[in-house]
Computed example of a mutant assay.
Amino acid sequence: MSLSRRMVLGAAVSGAALSRPALAQRPWPNRPIRLVLGFAPGGVGDLTARMIAPRISEGLGQPIIIDNRPGAAGIVAAEPVARSVPDGYTMLLLTTTNSTADAMYRSLPYDTNRDFAPVARVATFDHVLLTAANSPYRTLRDVIEAARAKPGSINLGSIAVGNAQHLGAELLRSMAGVDMTIVPYRSTPDLINATTTGDVHLASEILAPVLAQVQAGRLRALAMASAERYPLLADVPTANERDLPGYMVGSWNGVAGPAAMPRAIVERMNTEIGRALALPDIREKLLELGVTPAFSSPEEFGAFIRSEGERWSRIVESSNIPKQ
């Protein structure tokens, strides 16, 4: 082979070698991003994600595709994200359910604190304690006193054993020191129907899916399980301020990626989530749903996830709930 031909071939090989890193380092994102959700379409978390995703996409210049994977306490959604390539194109809507799963299951196929890179907390969801509109109970104290007067006579409804609503019901029973019969229902509509008809005397549920029922007078809110009253239900006291001091239960969600996701991607996504949540129309729509924007830094969200795992573990232990 002539010297000139060897030089040409060598330059071609060198150029190809240099082009591969150049392609690999194209600015993120350059294709759609998949956001995996651990629940079916239509729920409050799904609605929240679908509301803010287009606004985040505007800043990123790429669409965000919502991928619903319901089932098994969020494990079906979380496991593939934890094992995905950490390139910023697969992320998870991490929720309270992931923390309650940590507390309820003896083992999981991932570690919530170790296998995810926190990006930002998105929102919090207040919980509420409800009864039928024609119920004789006007306050949470009325229900607790009725349960003390006749142990086992009060039904306390929730959904899905092991989630925040169910554990909130278990915590209420434990803190009040009363014998209530906890009845789990398959879905929120089932629980609402049973509460409306009086089959359930007291229901533990997230505010968002029942807010319209309360505002329309079909259900009576006895107490919020939050630290503060909800702005759209300002006349409903918190359990902590009056009838059951110390009782506070809430839900949340946020975005996370696989653990080794580059810091630059974490920061860019965090910035765009914060921008979307700061938009006045987004904030207004979220509040109308019963959702409170709760944006945070990646570090704050990471610390929050750890504290939530510890808190729910304490609740499970103190309420003597058997692990699965």
Score class of each variant (00 low, 15 high):
residue 108 L to Q: 03
residue 177 G to I: 06
residue 107 S to K: 06
residue 15 G to H: 05
residue 250 G to S: 10
residue 86 P to S: 05
residue 312 W to K: 01
residue 59 G to D: 08
residue 125 F to G: 01
residue 90 T to M: 08
residue 45 G to T: 02
residue 97 T to L: 15
residue 156 L to Q: 04
residue 264 A to T: 10
residue 9 L to I: 13
residue 110 Y to T: 01
residue 8 V to T: 12
residue 228 E to Y: 12
residue 39 F to M: 08
residue 245 P to Y: 08
residue 308 E to M: 11
residue 124 T to F: 09
residue 30 N to F: 15
residue 55 R to M: 10
residue 137 Y to Q: 01
residue 230 Y to P: 02
residue 16 A to D: 04
residue 287 L to G: 04
residue 28 W to L: 05
residue 113 N to K: 02
residue 10 G to Y: 14
residue 289 L to C: 03
residue 287 L to W: 10
residue 60 L to E: 05
residue 209 P to F: 07
residue 270 N to T: 09
residue 313 S to W: 01
residue 48 T to R: 03
residue 104 M to A: 07
residue 63 P to R: 00
residue 310 E to A: 15
residue 34 R to L: 08
residue 271 T to F: 12
residue 9 L to G: 01
residue 104 M to C: 13
residue 318 S to Q: 12
residue 291 V to G: 02
residue 70 P to L: 09
residue 65 I to K: 01
residue 55 R to Q: 13
residue 149 A to T: 14
residue 236 V to I: 14
residue 291 V to T: 10
residue 17 A to T: 13
residue 189 P to T: 01
residue 292 T to E: 12
residue 17 A to D: 03
residue 191 L to C: 07
residue 205 E to F: 05
residue 206 I to E: 03
residue 222 L to C: 08
residue 133 A to Y: 05
residue 96 T to L: 02
residue 12 A to L: 15
residue 312 W to N: 00
residue 168 G to Y: 08
residue 24 A to I: 04
residue 179 D to N: 12
residue 115 D to K: 01
residue 253 N to M: 14
residue 128 V to S: 00
residue 126 D to A: 13
residue 323 K to F: 06
residue 200 V to T: 09
residue 150 K to W: 11
residue 18 L to C: 13
residue 87 D to I: 11
residue 2 S to M: 06
residue 150 K to E: 13
residue 1 M to Y: 06
residue 249 V to A: 04
residue 112 T to D: 03
residue 182 I to T: 09
residue 38 G to C: 06
residue 214 V to R: 02
residue 190 D to C: 03
residue 209 P to I: 02
residue 138 R to D: 12
residue 50 R to K: 07
residue 115 D to S: 07
residue 203 A to R: 07
residue 51 M to T: 13
residue 300 E to L: 07
residue 91 M to Q: 04
residue 83 R to C: 06
residue 126 D to C: 08
residue 171 L to E: 11
residue 242 R to F: 13
residue 31 R to P: 06
residue 274 G to A: 12
residue 129 L to S: 08
residue 32 P to K: 00
residue 217 G to Y: 06
residue 98 N to Y: 04
residue 294 A to V: 02
residue 117 A to V: 09
residue 17 A to R: 00
residue 201 H to F: 06
residue 158 S to W: 05
residue 108 L to K: 00
residue 123 A to C: 14
residue 141 R to H: 12
residue 155 N to I: 15
residue 112 T to K: 01
residue 28 W to F: 15
residue 250 G to K: 00
residue 132 A to H: 03
residue 26 R to G: 12
residue 146 A to H: 11
residue 187 S to W: 12
residue 310 E to D: 15
residue 53 A to L: 10
residue 124 T to L: 06
residue 51 M to P: 03
residue 235 D to Q: 12
residue 308 E to D: 14
residue 272 E to L: 11
residue 245 P to K: 00
residue 290 G to I: 09
residue 46 D to C: 08
residue 290 G to E: 08
residue 25 Q to L: 14
residue 280 P to N: 00
residue 151 P to S: 05
residue 134 N to I: 04
residue 170 E to F: 13
residue 170 E to C: 10
residue 183 V to Q: 02
residue 124 T to Q: 05
residue 17 A to C: 15
residue 91 M to H: 04
residue 16 A to T: 12
residue 269 M to Y: 07
residue 187 S to M: 11
residue 213 Q to S: 15
residue 261 M to F: 09
residue 52 I to R: 02
residue 162 G to D: 01
residue 41 P to I: 03
residue 108 L to E: 04
residue 268 R to G: 02
